[in-house]
Design a protein around this nucleic acid. Sequence first.
DNA 1: ATTTTTTCTTAATATAGTTTAAGATTTATT
DNA 2: AATAAATCTTAAACTATATTAAGAAAAAAT
Lengths: 193, 193
Amino acid sequence: MNINKLLTHFSNYIPLNEEEVNELSKRVVERNVKRKEFILQKNDICNNYTFIVSGLFKMYTVDKNGAEHILHFASENDWICDINSFHNKKQSLLYIDAIEPSTIIQIDNSNLMYLFTHYQKFDRTFRVLIENKFMELENRILQNISSKAEERYQFFLEQYPNICNRIPNVLIASYLGITPEFLSKIRNAISKK
Amino acid sequence: MNINKLLTHFSNYIPLNEEEVNELSKRVVERNVKRKEFILQKNDICNNYTFIVSGLFKMYTVDKNGAEHILHFASENDWICDINSFHNKKQSLLYIDAIEPSTIIQIDNSNLMYLFTHYQKFDRTFRVLIENKFMELENRILQNISSKAEERYQFFLEQYPNICNRIPNVLIASYLGITPEFLSKIRNAISKK
DNA sequence: ATTTTTTCTTAATATAGTTTAAGATTTATT
DNA sequence: AATAAATCTTAAACTATATTAAGAAAAAAT
């Protein structure tokens, strides 16, 4: 099993000792996911925290008109989870599916709670993880309330150089909150500079 | 000292035992803050997690044109902190000041780290705290990328009924990412329905 | 290899939101 | 109570972004 990437990931926060590695290994499941396959759909309860070994996912809502609005992208060495649904066992409003064929490692709610309860380190690591994600969202909010679409696009390209050329512009537009037609216009304007 | 409100707040997550209450009490400081007084300014390092006993604060950036962009409001029984500056000891890009005369309880970086290290409960509680704030930001992002200003305004009024009438519309506009003039137009349109 | 589906672009027209300016109202300060 | 400062509103002109439609290019599926 491809758990090394997950262990390396943890060691960037706080390295795990042998016992913790064993406990973790027992409690996670590896899966391959095809392109366009869902790992969460609306009205499901999100029962897993998902670590991405390789590949790329999007998490999004679909509005009454059928339009997707992308809340997060997540690629290798990142986590994806609807934590509202996960922690409160509520039906999710979100979809998560694979943009590329992917390999993931999942830990379900009861196993993660077990680790939280028995090993302080996991509580700590997941606190720091979510703090980092919180800061990213704060930056995104600031961008959204203070910048024009063109600046937000440029910022996206700078901030996610590893994924921006793996994602079709339709989806980038949806993430930025603009139409694909307008993104096209922006790209044209940038290329003329 | 007005620490009861803070203890009640913690007990909504996980109640503290006597030792934890003592440790916490020793490590926090109470302060009164006047209207318009700063508790964080740009280029300072945010050295405190601030719990609001009473009153109301705004956290914001100021752009090159001098315009404020409000990232968070926070009122009684809530926390406010630039966690990027706090955890990474980096100079903050943000200001925090009081919209109303306020009473706060602060815990500084080294004291909070002490509690995290010696009592698992605090690590846990602050994880859950930040998870809740993360979910709020996710909702705000979704609103921003998928809704018109009028819907975002209505949603703000519903979500923060306790603070929306304590905050001037100029500041609500800044939080929503629109101009005060346009908010005025929106309010006029709503009142005619 | 061909067909189907998805993606990207362009352009015309429409709508959402900004800017500037000014006056009226409310709130804070002396 | 009087003055100063901040807030709220209106309106006209402007800019950013959406919508509709259609065709070209690229990628995926058969």
